[in-house]
């Protein structure tokens, strides 16, 4: 860890993991940040699915308008996420996933 201009910077090391799996496939995902009152910190409050920023704003307002003075919406696909958490890393010991998650090839074409 280094300090640069008063800011703590975590250098990229091997234990940092980029989380880049998609979080939506039909519509854009928008991370929602709220501020309860003008002097408060912004806090992350999940995400909404919407094809455009105005519709994302409409949805976020319906969900959080009662509790927020400020709403920020950030496109999830424009966000770079890095974490030391890697879900299921202790189970990811070999390439068994590829075998177990082989593409099912009959979906949509088989008789039920």
């Amino acid at each position: 860890m280094v300090h640069r201009d008063g800011v703590t910077v975590h250098p990229m090391t091997d234990d940092w993991h980029r989380v880049d799996a998609p979080r939506a496939d039909e519509s854009r995902e928008w991370a929602v940040f709220l501020r309860d009152a003008p002097g408060d910190d912004l806090t992350h409050a999940g995400s909404v699915s919407a094809p455009s920023a105005p519709l994302a704003h409409e949805q976020a307002t319906a969900l959080f308008g009662h509790a927020a003075a400020t709403i920020w919406l950030c496109p999830a696909d424009e966000t770079r996420r890095f974490t030391r958490r890697q879900l299921g890393a202790e189970h990811d010991t070999d390439d068994r996933d590829d075998e177990h998650r082989a593409e099912p090839t009959t979906a949509g074409g088989d008789d039920p």
């Binding site: 799996a21 998609p22 979080r23 496939d25 039909e26 879900l87 299921g88 890393a89 202790e90 189970h91 990811d92 068994r96 996933d97 177990h100 998650r101 593409e103 099912p104 009959t106 979906a107 949509g108 088989d110 039920p112």
Partner: peptide
């Protein structure tokens, strides 16, 4: 493998991107 009119998950015949892997599912 079906296409139900009321599906809340809006499921489709093709596999969608980003599914949890076996290891992630165990996590």
């Amino acid at each position: 493998n079906l296409a139900c009119e009321h599906c809340y998950a809006a499921a489709e015949f093709e596999r969608a991107p980003g599914e949890l892997s076996t290891a992630e599912a165990k996590g």
